[in-house]
Amino acid sequence: MQKLNWGMIGGGEGSQIGPAHRLGAGLDGAFDFVAGALDHRPEAGITYGQRMGLADRAYGSWQDMLAGETARPDRVDLVTVATPNATHFEITKAFLENGFNVLCEKPMTMTVEEGEEIVKLARSTGKICAVNYGYTGYSLVRHMRAMVARGDIGKVRLVKAEFAHGHHADAADADNPRVRWRYDPAQVGVSAQFADCGIHAMHMASFVCGQEVTRLSADTVSCIDVRVLEDDAMVNFRMDGGTVGRLWTSSIALGRQHGLTLQVFGETGGLRWAQEQPNQLYHMPLNGRLQVIERGEGNLSPEADRTSRVTVGHAEGMPLAFANIYSDLAEAIRAQKEGSPMDPAANLYPRAEDGLRSMAAVYAVAASGQQDGAWLDARPPMFR
């Protein structure tokens, strides 16, 4: 099968996220990395791209890449946008308008209005616009979703999500440029910690439960008081299927490293998963004994089997979760080209609609926090 062409904007030398995308996109041999504008500094981007083997398709800017790839008969089939947050909307919009499929890092946009524009554009062009909520690519997260969907724990009553770390807990580090920008409204918008990490936890709750957040109440605080935006948030929410939600996100939780966890409590059982131990899913049946489900073991769901890549007992990590998102997208692009249906177990990549819902939640959390926890509508206007 001929490989698909893949290009990347951002994620250059020294980038935190770039290597994970390149590993994920290349793992299954579905994509060839053929084009990129990898740095906001033109010369650095071209030089690094050429070192990565991109030759004449190493571009100095995303505008140059758009023009160059639009003119080619072998243009990229998918472009990943891994640039600073404030640039996501402009770049994603431009590539969608010119007929490219896009995978955008989160947050997809900086405002709800921009998010609605991207959703409408993706629908009108018929192109794929995905958002990299990459943690939903983990095999056991997908098995968790399958267990909920087939009724293994009955009707879901409560979901508890966390994404807490302590890497910004040092008050002496508050003026460090590498940290300070994350709490600067001019660079990140109306929210810091919730927009950075909390939306991952909220999206995962929706993904696993198969429900959307409708309204929420938030308590937001800057525990390091020189910060304008929050470094800790507690969010209560309700979902359209009746599930009650609790979410805690923090960047000052010393002793926590990554801290993304999800617990789902149903009428007949409970489930628990943690990103730092992604190969185990804990299942507690009503009146039963705690069971440990191992990634890669037999008799799991098709969603889990498809996304389990190494034998049971061996660790799988974030790049392989990203690889599962890219595998989904490769199948979606081929189905698009051939006019054929997708395998339902692969049709799980996060959409532009998910990015829009997250941005609406960001604004609702920020507003609720300013209104002493008032309950607010968390839906974007176009979905109300």
Rank of each mutant, 00 (worst) to 15 (best):
A330D: 13
T220V: 15
Y282F: 09
R334Y: 01
L216A: 05
E316V: 11
E230A: 00
R306F: 04
N287D: 15
M239T: 13
G296V: 01
G255M: 10
I333Q: 04
V312M: 11
S301A: 12
Q263I: 03
V235Y: 11
L229A: 01
G288R: 15
L290P: 05
S217R: 09
M234C: 04
G296A: 02
V228C: 04
L271R: 11
G269S: 14
Y282G: 00
D232C: 11
G317N: 14
D240G: 11
N299F: 05
T311V: 12
V244W: 15
E303R: 04
H314F: 14
R295K: 01
P302Q: 03
D305L: 07
Q263G: 13
G255E: 08
S217E: 03
A274T: 15
Q263W: 08
A330R: 13
V226N: 06
Q280N: 08
T243G: 08
M284S: 14
P285R: 13
G245N: 07
G270K: 02
E297P: 06
R215D: 09
E297V: 06
E303Q: 12
L254F: 10
S251N: 12
H283T: 01
L320G: 03
W273Y: 07
V235R: 11
D225T: 15
E267Q: 15
Q275R: 11
M239R: 11
T243V: 15
A315Q: 10
G242L: 09
R295V: 02
W273R: 06
S250V: 02
A323H: 06
R215G: 02
L329Q: 06
D219P: 00
V228E: 03
T311F: 12
M234G: 07
V235K: 07
G288S: 13
I333P: 07
T311W: 11
G288M: 14
P302N: 05
E303A: 10
R215S: 06
P319L: 10
N279C: 14
A253R: 13
T214Y: 06
L329A: 05
